[in-house]
Structure formats: C-alpha cells, structure tokens
Write a protein that binds this DNA or RNA. Structure first.
Lengths: 197, 197
DNA sequence: CATTTGATATACGACGCGTATGTAATACTC
DNA sequence: GAGTATTACATACGCGTCGTATATCAAATG
C-alpha cells in the first residue's frame, strides 16, 4: 500500500515552507542556506528547486502563507466590530501588533519587499492589502470616508501601520511604545473621515 | 609635490560611494559585485574593506549620503511654505516624489531596511525622520496638531509617504496615480490636526 | 509486467565574500 | 634629511552558496 504521490509531495512542500519560515525568520533571507534549510526538513535542494524553482520562489511561497494568515486574522478581528469604521481601525491596530512578530517583520516587511519587489506586484497580490482595500471601498460607498482612491488610501493606511510596527519593534521597550503607535495611527486614520469627529 | 594623503583617501571614498550608488541602484545590493563595483571606481576590494569594513558598511555610507540629501531637500521645500502646517504637508509630498527615483527606492527603501535593519537604528539616525520629527514637535508645541508622541507621529507620516511612493512607482502609470497618492496623504495627515479643517 | 513519467538526490562549475598577507608611498622622529 | 613606522591599498587564498545538469528510484499507466 504505497502512499499516493500527490500526498507526499504536498507534505514535502509544507515541510520545506515550514523550514524556510524558521530559517528566514532566524537568519534572514540572504544568510539562510538552502542546504541547511532543506536538511532541516529531511530533504535536499533537489526537492526545493523542483517545487519552487529557485530561492526567490521559496520566499514567495513563504510570504504568501504568512500574508494570508495575517489577512485572515485581521478580517476576523475586523468583523467582530460593530460598525465598519471601528472595524478598519481594529484591523490597523491588529496589523501593528502582528507585525511585532519577528517572523512577520523579517520575512514580510523587510526581506519580502527587498527581494520580491513592491507588495502590489507579489503573486499572492498581498491579501492584507486586498482586505483593507475592500474595507475602504465599503466606507467610501457609505460616505463615511472621503472620496479618495481606495487603493491609495488602503496603501497609505497599511504603510503607516506596518511602519509603526517596525518602529515599535526596534524601540527599547516595545510594550511601552506600542500604545503610542496605535494612538497615532487612529488619529491619522481620522483624517480619512468625511465628517471629522 | 606629492598629494596629501588625507585628500586622496577622501577622493577614493567618494569614488567608491559613487560607484556603489550606481551599482546598488541598478542591480540591487545583493546582486552588486564588489569586484565590479570597485573596478568601476578604478580601485580594488582592498580599498573598500579598508574604508568601510565590509559590504554592509559601504551600504550604510551610501544610505547616509542619500538620506541626508533627501532631508536637506525636504527641509528646503518645507521652509518655503508660509506656515508650519503647510510646510509639513509639502515635506510629505516631497518625500513621495523623491521616492519615485529608482536610486532612492531601491537603496533607501528596500535594501536599506532589509540589510541594515529599521531606519531608527541606522548610524545616520535617518535625517529624514529627524526633520519631520522636529516639524511635528513644533506643531504640537503650537497646539496645531494633537498631543501625540512626536516620534510616533513622524514615523507614521513618513511611513505613509514612503509606502505611497513605492505604490506609485510600482503602478502602471506613475504620473497618473501620483496625485491620488498625494491627495490621500494630505487627507490622512489632516487626522493629526487638533481642530480638523 | 513493461514502460514511462516525474519527484527527489547527487555531482559539477562558477562566483562572491571575507581575510590574511604583501607592497609601496606617505608621515613621523631624531 | 635619513631611517623607521604607519597605513592605504593590492593580491592571493579558502570557504560557502547558488543554480544546473545528470542520475536514480518509486509510482503511475497501459
């Protein structure tokens, strides 16, 4: 009773991605060795090149996984809120907190853009951005925020949030400055409102 | 009459930095070869390692140069404006436009953070951030914007601006989306005002 | 059961970084 | 001003890594 082939291949893909997540987060993309990384997963570079093409392909797969996890989490947090405006604020705060995780920071915020280019061109299309863009579009339709380009507004919001997170994480005492960052973010976001509160 | 030593050394430093700017901008940091780069400057890796320690050191020097150029330009643009609030808006727009330059983008926005870490920990202390932080502090003192943490607000503003630029640059038709980004940035910034206009 | 497909392993070549050592010219010291 | 020390830069080497080309071996297929 041999194991079906598709199955083991998918297992291997997951093992490689998992090992890559760890290696990329700990050593950074460029310092992570593919030999070490694949050995950690009990495989060799052969499997890696067959599945992902090259090192960049592997990074793209890892980024996509993390990005979609973040988007799902942000959306879940957003939909818990009563109104749509509170939802987008909560999403933003959630991004800031998620980006405090070293894995997210190193892989998605630092190495990702440097190696893969701007998030708007990623294969995964950057789920996080998609989510906030949808939120912005709904808020514009409802007349709650100004008639801006939805993509621009989403991009600025997310950029502000993620940069805030980088700043918090690099600070001496992250738990201490995190609330300041969130407060500043919420203030900034208020600027999008058509009727400022 | 031999040339003074300090002088030729400074010349060589500048030649290396200039060559590095070009190479890093064109090929990206990791793909830029130090052998090629130094040859372009009429030197060898010996000079490079003596002057900058390692490849990262060279990147740090390049980043510092570009960053200070950007800060000077932004400040010049800011002081042309009548009141302080208009000044900071103009600075933000200036950052967006400056970040459309491939050199700035590739070196300062992408490779810089990935290789050197968060800008707040750069040796140059990131002159751009310093400039906007000062502006924010003055505006807070004047009661024009809310009583937020100046560093947080500066960081968010700059993050929004620079992310906007990345988005614009990656778009199909940059000249077309640039005004949208600037408009969105100005709206966002309004959120910092203590008395929204 | 024979054959083919394809997923993974192995072997190879090339390149780039960092360091250790060499060299020559300038800057000190008496 | 001659001898020495300093040091800016060049050269040579070793190590590690990536990407590809080839080999192997198990599973799918007829």
């Amino acid at each position: 009773m041999p194991k079906p082939r598709k199955e083991t291949m998918e297992e291997n893909r997951m093992k490689l991605i998992a090992a890559a997540r760890k290696a990329f987060a700990e050593k950074g993309y460029s310092a992570a060795s593919m030999d070490d990384l694949t050995a950690e997963a009990g495989l060799t570079r052969g499997a890696l090149y067959h599945n992902f093409g090259d090192k960049r392909g592997l990074l793209a797969a890892v980024v996509e996984q993390i990005d979609s996890e973040m988007a799902a989490r942000a959306q879940a947090i957003g939909t818990r809120e009563g109104d749509e405006w509170q939802a987008i604020l909560a999403e933003g705060a959630a991004y800031i907190e998620m980006a405090l995780d070293a894995e997210v920071q190193r892989i998605v915020l630092l190495d990702g853009p440097a190696v893969l280019g701007d998030p708007s061109k990623w294969p995964s299309q950057n789920s996080c951005l998609q989510v906030t863009k949808r939120s912005v579009e709904r808020l514009i339709a409802q007349g709650i925020i100004k008639q801006l380009d939805a993509e621009a507004a989403a991009r600025l919001l997310s950029g502000a949030a993620l940069n805030a997170a980088l700043w918090v994480a690099a600070s001496e005492n992250p738990p201490n400055v995190l609330p300041k960052a969130v407060e500043a973010f919420r203030s900034l976001a208020d600027g999008l409102l058509s009727k400022p509160s």
